[in-house]
């Protein structure tokens, strides 16, 4: 039995889909069989991030409606043999998701994959609720910015009330990823630090990702940033995926601008 992890955010545009794709691939790079599922019905995007948009024939709604078998709809990555993808439906409306069908699909996925990552739609509507309902754990992606953090707190609240695990008296594990950190702004006190954000949201930190312009270049090409060894964001995704696979990886302090603050400080003592 695998583990099901919902990737959620509250607010849109914080890098949730990018995170899902990169972490999924990073987990597969650890030798674990991993599938990423796009739950953003009507706004399919994970296929673009992964560069698999031309290979989508069937989507998760076809599987849920039993029009095709799961194996027919799943797309196998060319870059990693452990990495798989299931697309969201683009044409049908969001109400196609039914709790019983979602549950069946997720149980099916859990049996076949070690890690199942669900890319949730933004917002806190029904699509979001279906994504979190049967998840074992959730990753909340935020930007160090007020609206993103406030919306994330709302999403966490709903996660706690709608999760199947919580309803059964259990607990759904929650982890935070802070994306798009700009070190020199944090140093100048112009951006919330990870400590500030953790104080406010009160959940465990899974990782920090620096702002990196190359993320856009990577999504232009449909080649996940984690494959770029020279990218800071890519390396941050690698550290996080290693942590998700049970490796102990030190939390790198990306909030200190390596060629700003520290060097200036060192300069004083020269």
């Amino acid at each position: 039995m695998g583990i099901v992890i919902a990737v959620i955010s509250g607010k849109g545009g914080v890098g949730k889909t990018t995170a899902t794709g990169n972490l999924g691939l990073g987990i597969a790079m650890n030798g674990k069989k991993c599938i990423v599922v796009d739950f953003d019905v009507g706004q399919r995007n994970l296929d673009m991030i992964l560069g698999l948009e031309n290979r989508v024939v069937y989507d998760m709604v076809h599987v849920m409606d039993e029009e095709v078998a799961l194996s027919q709809a799943v797309i196998k990555s060319k870059s990693n043999e452990n990495f798989f993808f299931l697309a969201a439906s683009q044409t049908k409306d969001k109400s196609v998701l039914k709790s019983s069908k979602v549950k069946k699909l997720i149980l099916n996925l859990k049996e076949q994959y070690e890690y199942v990552l669900l890319d949730s739609p933004a917002g806190i509507e029904s699509g979001f609720e279906h994504t979190i309902e049967f998840a074992d754990a959730a990753i909340i992606v935020v930007n160090p910015e007020v609206s993103s953090i406030r919306d994330a707190d709302r999403a966490i609240g709903i996660l706690d009330s709608k999760s199947h695990k919580v309803k059964e008296g259990g607990e759904v594990a929650k982890y935070l990823i802070i994306n798009r950190i700009i070190a020199n702004m944090v140093q100048k006190g112009e951006m919330l630090s990870s400590k500030d954000i953790l104080d406010i949201l009160n959940i465990k930190l899974l990782g920090k990702i620096p702002e990196d312009k190359r993320v856009i270049d990577a999504s232009n090409q449909g080649r996940p940033i984690i494959l770029d060894n020279t990218s800071e964001a890519g390396n941050a995704y690698k550290r996080i995926s290693n942590r998700m696979c049970g490796k102990s990886v030190e939390m790198k302090d990306i909030e200190i601008d390596s060629d700003g603050f520290l060097r200036k400080l060192a300069g004083i003592f020269k």
Partner: peptide
């Protein structure tokens, strides 16, 4: 005040109000 401190103060208050909401989604 640094804007990050302002942000933290404002967020803390807004989120406290959200959490004790008198509404359902």
């Amino acid at each position: 005040k640094k804007s990050a401190i302002v942000a933290k103060d404002r967020l803390t208050i807004a989120i406290m109000a959200d959490r004790t909401s008198t509404s359902y989604p």
